[in-house]
Amino acid sequence: MQNLGIDVLFKGTNMLRLLGGLWVSLRISLIAVGFSIALGIPLGMLMTKDSKIVKAIARLYLEIVRVMPQMVLLFIVFFGTTRIFGWNLNAELASVIVFSFWGCAEMSDLVRGAFISIPKHQYESARALGMNSFTVFFFVILPQTLRRLLPTSINLVTRMIKTTSLVMMIGVVEVLKVGQQIIEANRNSSPNAAFGVYGTVLLLYFIGCWPISMLSKYLEKKWSNS
């Protein structure tokens, strides 16, 4: 069998650099996930209200995010807006902005869906027990909503982590880019590095996403009896 090209990873600090790249990927996605949750939940709750204007704006936002490829969004924000508005945006910040913009839209839609799936009777039976709107929301509606939200939002998080592989296109040195650099630098000494390095990158993504999936499975199981 051919040399798998894993050996390059043990040269110098290559493995450490790759892990550093993974951290960049995770950092971008986790910060974006943070923003998406923080902004998506209130936005999603707003979308359950009956206002036509709010609904129209939210709809428009959601559609824009859905039809636009993330890469185009990245290019617009990083190359486009920096010229037009003359501001200085580093590539990582631009990535966080784009991923938050995307995540927030998807998150708000998930939140909206989870909230409207709670039967009207749940509110009524809670109110009939003398609870005020605050108690109804925090003790009856919210816990049920979060349980329903969990699987879909975890799915969104892992999708966001995976999609960060795009940010190398605007010059962020994340795990895939580091892998590419390592392969380039060792083109002559280990021509098979592409397999070993990209294979390792794949494994690193798996290591990044798998625990999150497991956590979701665990919580789902723990909450399944409810």
């Binding site: 009777h121 749940q122 039976s125 009939a128 027990l129 003398g130 009856v140 049920q144 409810s226």
Partner: peptide
């Protein structure tokens, strides 16, 4: 409402409790 208990057709217990 504290003084008036109401029981509904569809019971509506809180499923997470």
């Amino acid at each position: 409402r504290e003084k008036v208990g109401m029981v509904f057709q569809s019971y509506e217990l809180f499923p997470h409790k």
